[in-house]
């Protein structure tokens, strides 16, 4: 491909150093890098990848030994939940000229941010005690007190709240998506390599809502009024028509475009992984207000039926952005019930 072969001539001198790191992540964002396939080989030829836990055997000390700002750009995926992740994020921030949030978890807290609907003690208890497939009579929790009074089992902190990357360190720009399309990851890397960096805080992708670039938009009506929403298994749906027009919740109107409408092309309604549009403070609130406005009646019974057809508003509206939302998750129960 032409843009990369051009790069080879550009970087004949010193190769720019690149790092990739994962924090609280599922690994899907790493896949979005591997999905670059042959292009990844081209990128590796013109860069010097100094740290990439998913693929290389470089360690913390190797990064620490670099001069501040020596790494040209670092891509961080995953949210911050643990102390060592914060430490890594801070170290990489110091060593990098550009720090890029890669994927919805680093951008907005992502799916892992949904853990903020629970307290950390409940989560640990669930994971290490309650899960039916766990048989663990000793009851040792890697983050808690050792049962024999021998002190803390683990040294590393497990935070109460999941946070997006920019709550911890300054982020230069964002590659949205869960995971981002490989084309967008490539675009982010090319921006760095060609030194055409976007203004600080830029979120790659489009500045218009997804509907603008959705292949189904032809059937999105000008005004829409619904008695209630249906779920996909409850109705026979048209595989080419706008989901909302069919009464199936789609968050396209309140979601940043730029994902190539991959879900829509795969017969799935949008769930909002590219995050909100510019100037929107709280993605969930925006999804809530546009969906609420579709109710065709304000009669209490009708409205109740309408509200009941959104069984889990929190999980739906904040599937990717709870940790970046105004409420951040569930309020502290202990403190509120006195």
């Amino acid at each position: 491909m032409s843009d990369l072969s051009q790069l080879k001539t550009l970087s004949r001198g010193k190769k720019p150093k690149i790092a990739l790191c994962w924090c609280s992540s599922c690994g899907g964002c790493e896949e979005s890098v591997f999905d670059l396939a042959e292009e990844l080989v081209d990128i590796m030829a013109v860069t010097d990848i100094v740290f990439w836990p998913a693929a290389l055997d470089a360690k913390y000390q190797d990064v620490a030994a670099l001069a501040d700002g020596e790494i040209t750009a670092t891509l961080v995926n995953g949210a911050i939940r643990m102390e060592h992740q914060e430490e890594m994020a801070r170290l990489l921030r110091r060593k990098s000229q550009w720090l890029i949030a890669h994927g919805a978890c680093a951008h907005l807290g992502g799916v892992v941010g949904l853990a903020n609907f629970h307290g950390s003690a409940d989560l640990l208890n669930r994971a290490y005690q309650e899960i039916p497939t766990v048989h663990h009579p000793a009851g040792i929790c890697p983050f808690g007190e050792a049962p024999d009074g021998a002190g803390q089992v683990g040294k590393r902190g497990f935070y109460e709240t999941v946070l997006p990357l920019n709550r911890m360190v300054a982020v230069d720009f964002y590659i949205p998506g869960c995971p981002p399309p490989p084309e967008l990851v490539k675009e982010g890397l090319m921006m760095v390599l060609e030194q055409r960096l976007p203004p600080a805080g830029t979120i790659l992708g489009k500045r218009q809502a997804l509907c603008q670039s959705c292949p189904r938009r032809g059937s999105l009506p000008e005004t829409l009024r619904l008695k209630e929403f249906s779920r996909m298994h409850q109705v026979t749906w048209d595989a080419a028509a706008c989901f909302l027009a069919q009464g199936i919740i789609c968050l396209g109107p309140a979601t940043r475009g730029g994902c190539q409408a991959r879900c829509l092309q795969g017969n799935m309604p949008c769930r909002g992984c590219f995050g909100p549009l510019d100037l929107v403070r709280d993605q969930g609130a925006k999804s809530l207000s546009f969906l609420a406005s579709l109710a065709d009646s304000a009669d209490p019974e009708d409205l109740q039926r309408f509200a009941d057809s959104i069984p889990d508003p929190g999980g739906l509206f904040y599937q990717f952005s709870l940790a970046a939302s105004l409420l951040k998750g569930k309020a502290d129960d202990q403190k509120n019930n006195h």
Binding site: F117, L291, A292, S293, Q304, A307, F317, N336
Partner: peptide, 21 residues
């Protein structure tokens, strides 16, 4: 005002999930 009523109906449900009475 009816829009406010519709919005509030769903917002209250969300607040409940977020531990806000």
């Amino acid at each position: 005002n009816l829009q406010a009523l519709k919005m509030t109906a769903i917002l209250k449900k969300l607040l409940g999930q977020c531990g806000i009475q």
